[in-house]
């Protein structure tokens, strides 16, 4: 597609083409520009809850995953101020949960960990909350470790819109928000979830995991051992674009 002033916008001074209906995020990633994100998975409806993908559009902040691309708009993403905000958001996520990367089976494939690396986090900055959260290991195939949940809502959305089971929901308010399971006991074992469900395949962190698969991928072959998340995300997005739109 050749750049067309009516169908391009400026992203950090670079002209980005877009298709009708694309978001700023989608157009940027398709053009090879990484925008940090955690709650968004391009295969599913955007949610704009983590706010990591916030960009400045014509002087005002928007979540790029839900912001429609509009011809001629001036978008800023890779700025010192925005990256500092992204670092702070990531640090807050890290201290709100119990994220012990050294013993976590998701290490090397965790979007939170990889994003922290990509943003250059040196520490968590804020005091750890060390919350007391339950691990639900009742299901024979699936484990829900709320210590690692970042409340991205992906499992909630996918279970509702794709699996059509509504297994997961969020309850509580503010810092007390947590994931709950729709079953008489509140346990996964008594819910309608199964290991084939899409909702349990796309957790960006180690909160929803399959049993029996931990550490089977050796160090060096894990997703973000091969490439950092900024390169991996763009490559995967572009492959998806080629697959869906030629």
């Amino acid at each position: 597609m050749s750049p067309d002033t009516r169908r391009t916008f400026l992203l950090d001074g670079r002209e980005i083409p877009f298709r009708e209906g694309q978001t700023v995020f989608d157009a940027a990633m398709a053009a090879g520009v990484y925008i940090p994100h955690l709650c968004h998975n391009p295969d599913f409806e955007p949610h704009s809850s983590c706010r990591l993908c916030t960009v400045i559009v014509n002087g005002r902040p928007f979540a790029s995953c839900t912001q429609p691309a509009v011809a001629g708009q001036d978008v800023k993403s890779d700025t010192a101020e925005l990256n500092e905000m992204r670092r702070s958001l990531t640090q807050m996520l890290l201290v709100e949960g119990n994220h012990y990367c050294p013993s976590c089976e998701k290490s090397g494939g965790c979007r939170l960990q990889a994003t922290a690396y990509a943003l250059g986090l040196q520490d968590n900055h804020f005091p750890q909350f060390f919350p007391l959260r339950d691990v639900d290991a009742s299901h024979p195939d699936i484990i829900l470790d709320r210590d690692r949940c970042i409340l991205c809502g992906l499992c909630v959305r996918i279970s509702r819109t794709v699996d059509r089971k509504n297994v997961f929901a969020m309850t509580g308010r503010g810092i007390d928000t947590t994931i709950v399971v729709d079953s008489p006991t509140g346990l996964l074992a008594d819910s309608r979830v199964s290991r084939e469900d899409e909702a349990v395949q796309h957790c960006p962190v180690g909160a929803l995991m399959m049993k029996g698969e931990a550490f089977t991928v050796p160090i060096g072959e894990r997703p973000y051992d091969r490439a950092p998340i900024n390169e991996d995300s763009v490559a995967q997005f572009q492959a998806r674009e080629a697959r869906l739109h030629g």
Binding site: P102, E105, V135, A137, I143, K211, A214, F215
Partner: peptide, 14 residues
């Protein structure tokens, strides 16, 4: 205690 067993070999080596 309270952690799934498959984490143990990686955790305790610390």
């Amino acid at each position: 205690q309270g952690r799934p067993y498959w984490e143990v070999p990686v955790l305790v080596q610390r």
